[in-house]
């Protein structure tokens, strides 16, 4: 890769690390170590396609987010067929946000806990639709599914999340 391309890649990676990490953090239910692994893998894949296709990626930031979600789903599939273990304890949440009081922390834990109980695909749909604000069509493209399938999955995932949250669903937004 030429020096200018490498420089452009580094700038891109530095700019996208935080947004990618936040998405990965939500997708993994707050597992900071797995989130970092996913981000690293995503950025390394971006490096591989960068020199050859940086001018043809269209929107590299959106491409990277899509690669991240697909990596996540692939990782979950691999774990499901190999070594995934159920534990009573939540994953290690790693570094917590600097700001926020006890109420915010409780909210995060509640939400992450509920998200973790959803299937990986349900989580991916909710993160793409409600964290990344993607349209149904964009979400369908990212997950390689039809728009109809994404609409159906979104409705069901919302119902499941609501059920998981129970009475705490009403506390999602501070009044």
């Amino acid at each position: 890769m030429r020096q200018a391309q490498t420089k452009a890649y580094i700038e891109f990676a530095q700019a996208r690390t935080r947004p990618l990490y936040r998405s990965a953090w939500l997708l993994t239910g707050g597992d900071s170590h797995l989130a970092e692994d996913l981000v690293q893998e995503t950025l390394s894949r971006m490096y591989v396609v960068w020199g050859r296709r940086s001018d043809k990626l269209g929107n590299p930031a959106a491409y990277a987010q899509t690669v991240l979600v697909r990596n996540f789903l692939m990782h979950r599939r691999r774990r499901a067929t190999t070594t995934e273990r159920l534990t009573a304890e939540p994953p290690e949440y790693g570094r917590q946000p600097a700001a926020g009081g006890a109420g915010d922390v409780a909210l995060r834990m509640t939400l992450l806990d509920a998200l973790t109980r959803l299937s990986p695909k349900d989580r991916a749909v909710l993160v793409l639709r409600y964290w990344e604000d993607r349209s149904v069509e964009d979400t369908a493209e990212a997950l390689q599914a039809s728009s109809g399938a994404i609409r159906t999955r979104t409705v069901r995932a919302l119902e499941r999340l609501r059920a998981e949250l129970g009475e705490q669903a009403a506390d999602l937004v501070p009044r």
Binding site: T17, R18, Y21, R22, S23, W25, L26, S32, A35, E36, V39, G94, R95, Q96, P97, A98, A99, G100, D104, L107, R108, L111, L112, L126, V127, Y130, W131, D133, L158, L161, R162, A169, L172, V173
Partner: peptide, 19 residues
């Protein structure tokens, strides 16, 4: 609920940083 979820996800993740 969708609006609330969107806001809550932002509140939960916006301050999260990798090590």
């Amino acid at each position: 609920f969708e609006d609330a979820l969107s806001t809550a996800l932002r509140q939960a993740a916006e301050a999260v940083l990798p090590d």
